[in-house]
Amino acid sequence: MLSFFSPSNIFVYLNKVIEFLNSIIFIVLVVALTFALVISPPDYVQGNVVRIMYVHVPAAWISLAIFSIMTFSYIINYIFRIKNLLIINYSIAPIGLLFTALAIITGSVWGKPTWGTWWAWDARLTSMIVLMFFYIALILSLKYLNDERIKLKVTTTLSIIGFINVPIIRYSVDYLNTLHQPTSLKITGTSTIHTSFLLPLFLMLLVFLIYSALIFLMKYKTEIIKMKKKRLKNYD
């Protein structure tokens, strides 16, 4: 059953999925932007600055999710040796870095009019910068380490150590005094964000997810082709 998910089998479906995502992303983007920029009400204190949240929050969620996926894949690969997971991690890492940087930059742009400063060394902001450095270290070692075995060891260790940071990022605002406000959207308990902000937020999340999937699948496809080519060469 597992062989169904092997790169060669997935490859057949990749183009179809990419085409499908390509056909819907623009429509979803237009709808989401309409909601985020026009239909959504301004906030009672922040005013229109609240619209930055629609980029900031989904970007931060995705950056954390991708790091968790990477750590999980590295652990599973460490135990069961599934090479496919390594190709997935190689393709997904840059997307994680992109969204981490996006979350930090939009947060900074939001912070200037709201807090009165671009940057503060509070627990949330600092741990987010640490996450970005972990992404950079991971990507650099994936790109520039030549020995496959050393590369695997280094990246697995980096991802496991970096993963400690993920719960720190998540809970820093709730348990420590930070400049960053506590979590508004809670899965358990009552959220302190009004429902009229939620639809644009989740639509933007959907756009970002589709975008990530698209970029990831394209990169993944290229990597599979590269791998097959290498194997063909070895047979010559």
Binding site: P41, P42, D43, Y44, V45, Q46, V50, M53, T114, W115, G116, T117, A120, L179, Q181, P182, T183, S184, T192, I193, H194, S196, F197
Partner: peptide
Amino acid sequence: ILAKHDENYMPPEL
């Protein structure tokens, strides 16, 4: 001086 924003988000009418 930095303003600390709280976690409440709501429209002005509300």
